[in-house]
Design a protein around this nucleic acid. Structure first.
Lengths: 207, 207
DNA sequence: TCGATTATATGATCATCATCATATAAAAGA
DNA sequence: TCTTTTATATGATGATGATCATATAATCGA
C-alpha cells in the first residue's frame, strides 16, 4: 500500500520517539520490538522495514534522546545571564520532577549502570551524547567566567557527573524521605561549588 | 546422596557468592539461574532446592554484597583517625580500581539505574543496604566533628550519593580520558567539601 | 551391608523475544 | 480501471530462560 509522500518517515520518527521513552523506562535490554511497534499502532513484522536490527533502533533512539536533552538544557537557561543560567539548569536537573520521570529525563541518569553491559556501538553513541552535553556546560562555565580552557572542561564534566549521579542514586532508593534528602543536599552542594547558590547569586558575595 | 553435615550450607553460600558477582556484572535481569549453577559446578535443576525463586536468590545475594561492602568500608579506614578515615574511604571508593571492577564493587554504583525496574522486595533490600552504609558514614562524620545529628545524616547521604554517582557515571562512559577526568575531579571535590582533602589533612587549614 | 534420605541431575514445559519469509492490501500511475 | 509498488500483517523459527516433575546416586544410620 502506497501511503502519502512522507508517511514512512513519519512512522519512523514515531517509532523512535516511543523507543526513546521505553529505552529510559525499561533499559536497553527491557525494550521489546513487538511492544514498541504495538504502541506505534503497528505489528512486529513491519519493524525490519524501518530498522536493520534492534541495536540500530536503540542507537537512533538514544541519539534522539540526547538531542532532546540538549534542547531542554538550552530551554531551561533561555534568556538568563550565565551564572543564573547555571543555577537554573542545576535546579531543573537535580529535581524531584526529573527523578520521578525517567522516561522523559536525561539518559545518563536513566542508563548509567546499564552502559557497561551494552554493545560497543551503543556505548559510542552514549559517549557522543555525554560529550556534547558537557560541551554545552563548559561553554556556560566559560561564559560565566568561573573557569576556562581545560579547567572549564574538567569542571563541566565533574559537575555533570555529580548531577546525573545524584539523580540516579536518588531514583534508585525507594524510600522517599531519603531520596528527597539526597536530592536536595546534592543540588545545594553543586550550586555552592560553582558559586551559583542563591546566596551568591543574590549578590551577597560576588557581582 | 547425603553429604557432610554442612555441605548444603556451603553450596548455598557458594551460589550466593557467585550470584553476587554476576548481579553486579550483568544486572538483576542479566543473571541466569543456569549460568550461576554451572559456575558453582552444578546443574540448573538443583537450584530450587536452595532458593524458592530467582528473586529470592537475588535478594539474598544483594544482602551479602551490601554486607561485604560495609566490611570493605571498615577495612579501608581501619586504624585511622576520623578525618583521615573519611579521606581514605573516598580515595578507596572513587577510584579507577572500583570503576574497573563492577563485579566486586559497590552495589549502589553497579545497580542504580536498574533499581527503578525491580520488584518491591528487591528494592527494599537495596534500601536497607544503602541506609546501613549511610549510617556508617554518618558515624564517621560525627566522630570527625564535621557535623552531627540530622545534619550529619544529610551530609552522609549526600556524600554517598556523590561518590556512587561519580563512579557510576565514569563507568558508563567508555572514553577513558573523559572517565578518568570525571573520577579525579569528583574525588577532589568531595574531599574538599568535607574538608578532608590532602591540603586540609596536612594541617594547613585545620587541626 | 542395606535401606532410607536427600542433594543434585535430566529432561520437559511454557513463556518471551528477535528475526525473517511470505502474504496482503492500499494507493499511485498508467 | 488495472497494474505495480511497497508499507504493513501473519505466522513461522530458533534461541534463551525460569520453573518443575521425576530420576539418580551418594552417604548415613541401622
Amino acid at each position: 500500500m502506497r501511503y502519502s509522500e512522507n508517511h514512512k518517515e513519519e512512522i519512523h520518527l514515531k517509532i523512535l520517539k516511543i523507543a526513546g521513552r521505553a529505552l529510559r523506562a525499561k533499559g536497553p535490554d527491557g525494550v521489546g520490538v513487538a511492544d514498541i511497534m504495538k504502541e506505534a499502532g503497528l505489528t512486529h513484522g513491519g519493524f525490519y522495514a524501518h530498522f536493520k536490527s534492534k541495536e540500530e533502533l536503540l542507537i537512533q533512539a538514544l541519539e534522539g534522546v540526547f538531542a532532546a536533552s540538549k534542547k531542554k538544557f538550552l530551554k531551561a537557561i533561555e534568556g538568563l545571564p550565565p551564572r543564573h543560567a547555571l543555577g537554573a539548569y542545576i535546579d531543573f536537573y537535580v529535581s524531584a520532577n526529573q527523578r520521578d520521570n525517567p522516561a522523559n529525563g536525561c539518559p545518563i541518569t536513566a542508563l548509567n549502570s546499564d552502559m557497561p553491559r551494552q554493545s560497543k556501538k551503543f556505548r559510542a553513541a552514549f559517549d557522543g551524547g555525554v560529550k556534547r552535553l558537557i560541551g554545552t556546560m563548559r561553554d556556560l562555565i566559560t561564559d560565566a567566567g568561573i573557569a576556562e580552557g581545560d579547567e572549564a572542561h574538567a569542571l563541566a564534566s565533574s559537575v555533570f557527573s555529580a548531577m546525573a549521579g545524584a539523580v540516579a542514586v536518588s531514583r534508585a532508593v525507594s524510600d522517599k524521605r531519603l531520596s528527597d534528602e539526597m536530592l536536595e543536599t546534592a543540588r545545594n552542594s553543586i550550586k555552592t561549588r560553582l558559586g551559583v547558590d542563591d546566596a551568591s547569586l543574590s549578590g551577597k558575595y560576588l557581582q
